[in-house]
């Protein structure tokens, strides 16, 4: 597989990555889409981001990503409230294609329950998951 998946991240079955960070002693998570997801979506042209302060439940649509001829939701992997969104994506949505794990992060959430984070896939689990998805095709 030619996609890159960093070791230190957690992953979801909807092809999102989640990174736990400590911000002034508060646990927050950064969320983005994986290299696999950006490759499948193709060139991304627009990202619709949530308002800060919004409370989200796991599985709720957090952002909408558009390529020229497709629209996909980014679903929140955990419960929490939106602390920050990556405003750079408004003008340069291509960051999601070019640098999905760093400059292309999408939102930062204040996580409500850390156990939810622990329950997400590890990189090896996600690799198996992607392999299976590819075989089905």
């Amino acid at each position: 597989m030619h996609w890159h998946f960093p070791e230190d991240l957690k992953y979801t079955g909807k092809h999102e990555w989640v990174k736990m960070t400590d911000q002034n002693g508060k646990k927050t998570v950064l969320i983005g889409i994986t290299d696999y997801a950006q490759d499948k979506l193709g060139k991304i042209v627009f990202v619709e981001l949530p308002e800060t302060g919004r409370e989200v439940k796991p599985g709720e649509s957090l952002a909408v990503i558009e390529s020229v001829k497709a629209v996909s939701d980014v679903f929140s992997p955990v419960a929490g409230s939106v602390l920050e969104v990556n405003e750079g994506l408004f003008d340069t949505p291509e960051l999601l294609n070019e640098d999905p794990y760093a400059a292309g992060w999408i939102v930062r959430l204040a996580i409500a329950d850390e156990a939810e984070y622990a329950g997400l896939m590890s990189v090896s689990e996600y690799l198996t998951f992607v392999r299976q998805a590819e075989e089905e095709v």
């Binding site: 558009e66 390529s67 497709a70 629209v71």
Partner: peptide, 9 residues
């Protein structure tokens, strides 16, 4: 901006 339209969304 065809993603607004019925044939995609």
């Amino acid at each position: 901006l065809q993603t607004r339209e019925q044939h995609i969304r």
